[in-house]
């Protein structure tokens, strides 16, 4: 048995400990946001966050993930109430075929959570492992910058609200 905390819910799963996290997310938990691209950690389509760090879930056996906090694209918001990262990608129409986008959003989310003011060079370097075969990289970069603005604005508002 492996214990996994995914998007705030704890699951007890009867899987082989060497199963890649991606297979468990998709096959056992029905979370199909993270995609199988290359299966070799070379393309980034499977990117999710583990304890706030972007991780390639296709090469991470669940035995390394047990008792850590996993966030997938489903954890960033819902269809009715998309989170700032998702709103930014929609606003910039950053997806063409869309296969890489969940991974792109998760990698960008990990960066902006740690460094809300990440400079452009930092965003580019950080996003380097994730590939987009349609070539919408410029829109993706724009979406990440927009997401950073949205997240900063939200943080400011909630700070204002919490001030007595």
């Amino acid at each position: 048995m492996v214990t996994l905390k995914v998007n705030g819910t704890t699951h007890e799963l009867d899987v082989e400990p060497d199963t890649p996290l991606l297979y468990v997310l998709r096959d056992n938990l029905g979370l199909n946001g993270a995609k199988f691209g290359c299966g070799l950690g070379q393309c980034g389509a499977c990117t999710v966050m583990v304890d706030g760090t972007a991780v390639l879930s296709c090469v991470m056996p669940v035995m390394l993930i047990a008792n850590r906090t996993v966030t997938t694209v489903e954890g960033l918001g819902t269809l009715d109430n998309p989170g700032p990262m998702q709103r930014a990608f929609i606003a910039e129409q950053a997806a063409q075929c869309g296969y890489c986008i969940a991974g792109m959003m998760m990698r960008a989310q990990a960066l902006l959570q740690k460094h809300p003011d990440a400079a452009d060079a930092e965003i580019r370097t950080h996003m380097e492992p994730n590939l987009c075969r349609c070539g919408t990289h410029m829109r993706i970069l724009k979406a990440v910058r927009r997401a950073a603005d949205l997240m900063r604005a939200e943080a400011k508002q909630s700070a204002l609200r919490s001030t007595p």
């Binding site: 304890d51 760090t53 991780v55 090469v59 390394l64 492992p129």
Partner: peptide, 17 residues
């Protein structure tokens, strides 16, 4: 880490997990 804009060897980082 991959080299920007060219084919290069890459290994995923495991530090996060």
């Amino acid at each position: 880490s991959p080299a920007p804009g060219e084919r290069s060897p890459i290994m995923p980082s495991y530090g996060g997990v």
